[in-house]
């Protein structure tokens, strides 16, 4: 048993793309409205009003992953409840969270250091002297000619 269109495999991805578009078209058709207008209401805030303070933040969004991979990120947090007369009358809560920049510290930084090290070594070649540059061009031209001569 072979696939129904085995000999035309090369157009299959395009047909799949069409299928995706077909699905989209079906979705749009199914939800299409001829008469009624779409009603606009504020986002549901459980009977209250939402503000900028109630919007999900980026660090909150990534928090669960950070907690799942705590072995890698090693997050630390500090929650401080400020109260003057009694711990049961909190006036303000301050929160501080930090995480170990594992990838930066053990990945990008060493790589960056290595690249920078090589680059600063290369700087010797490129000290800004016009004579030196002309010398490089000459040396390169000679090398190429030698190569052509030797190969030919």
């Amino acid at each position: 048993m072979t696939s129904p269109v085995a000999s035309f495999d090369h157009v299959a991805p395009a047909v799949f793309g069409l299928a995706l578009l077909g699905g989209l078209a079906a979705a749009i058709l199914l939800s299409a409205r001829t008469r009624r207008v779409i009603r606009r209401e504020p986002t549901w805030g459980c009977g209250g009003i939402l503000s900028a303070r109630t919007e999900y933040t980026s660090s909150a969004f990534s928090k669960p992953l950070m907690m799942v991979f705590r072995a890698v990120y090693r997050p630390t947090r500090q929650v401080e409840a400020l109260a003057q007369v009694s711990p049961y009358f909190t006036q303000e809560v301050r929160y501080r969270a930090e995480m170990e920049p594992t990838f930066e510290r053990y990945g990008y930084r060493p790589l960056l250091r290595a690249v920078l090290g090589v680059a600063s070594g290369m700087k010797v070649l490129q000290a800004g002297s016009l004579h030196a540059y002309l010398g490089y061009v000459l040396a390169m031209a000679v090398c190429l000619m030698l190569l052509v001569w030797w190969r030919g």
């Binding site: 303070r53 109630t54 999900y56 933040t57 980026s58 928090k63 303000e92 809560v93 929160y95 969270a97």
Partner: peptide
């Protein structure tokens, strides 16, 4: 009462 810090929301 305020809760402050990076990424804190209500």
């Amino acid at each position: 009462r305020p809760v402050t810090g990076e990424g804190v929301f209500q």
